[in-house]
């Protein structure tokens, strides 16, 4: 099983008739068992890659290129996304009810859904009573893990996590990243979009570096070491050298 993104580009039609191209020429390959990361500064188009794969583009957007799994277009349930914003949780429904919705979308019976939710809750390390809480009662870290849980319920072959550690304390961030690292398997590949370079390097085999909507570098994680002498693009080197922990290491 492998996800193939070829020449992915996006173009937004603006009010003044001009076109904005926030993304162009993105290629990415993701095989079962792999964890791959996308890094880049804010506004580089990282989340747009996720949106394009999920078909969540605004109406004025036009996508070019192809996104395929084993040579066939993506179908319902193939890809699951844990979105960046915790506002993706329904403020009027308790966590349990929301997870049940995703279980139903995955075609699980009520019973199977309940067991699956129990399982997933352990996997993302949330205690069972969280199921009765409403989103506004959750801490940021809990909400992030609930979002991850919504994406894990169906048996999607590709899991995308968009900034899974944003706004979360270091210990919880470690937990979330390790959890993501453990999710890749013979039937599943994981794509992690993150600013959190050190933690991402801990789980990802390869990184794709985006700058202003273009890929500037694709390299194995080992290239991020020392003062970045094995990194090719100056932007990637700057990104690496901006990491206080990494440089001292």
């Amino acid at each position: 099983m492998s996800l193939e993104i070829r020449g992915l580009g996006l173009s937004f039609r603006q009010h003044n008739g001009r076109r904005l191209e926030p993304l162009s020429g993105v290629n990415l390959t993701l095989d079962a068992g792999e964890v791959v990361g996308i890094v880049g500064s804010s506004g580089a188009g990282k989340s747009l890659v996720a949106a394009a794969i999920m078909g969540l583009l605004p109406r004025n957007a036009e996508a070019t290129g192809s996104v395929q799994i084993d040579g066939a277009p993506i179908t319902k349930g193939d890809v699951a996304l844990a979105p960046q914003g915790i506002d993706a949780l329904d403020p009027m429904a308790p966590v349990g009810r929301q997870l049940t919705r995703f279980a139903r979308l995955a075609g699980l019976s009520a019973d199977a859904g309940r067991r699956r939710i129990e399982n997933i809750m352990q996997q993302v390390q949330l205690p069972a009573p969280v199921l009765t809480l409403y989103p506004h009662m959750l801490s940021g870290g809990m909400a992030k893990r609930v979002l991850l849980a919504t994406a894990l319920i169906g048996r999607a072959r590709i899991l995308i996590a968009d900034e899974p550690t944003l706004g979360v304390d270091p210990a919880t961030a470690d937990q979330i990243m390790n959890c993501l690292g453990g999710l890749a398997g013979p039937e599943r590949a994981v794509l992690v979009i993150s600013h959190d370079l050190p933690r991402l390097l801990g789980i990802a085999a390869r990184l794709t570096v985006l700058k202003d909507g273009r890929m500037v570098e694709v390299c194995p994680s080992e290239h991020f070491r020392g003062i970045g002498e094995r990194l090719v693009h100056p932007f990637t080197q700057a990104l690496w050298q901006a990491q206080p922990v990494a440089v001292s290491a």
Binding site: G55, L56, G77, A80, P83, G85, L89, L105, G154
Partner: peptide
């Protein structure tokens, strides 16, 4: 049009 609805849409609803 809200994020919760988009999240459900993305997963096939």
């Amino acid at each position: 049009e809200s994020p919760p609805a988009q999240h459900l849409t993305a997963h096939g609803a």
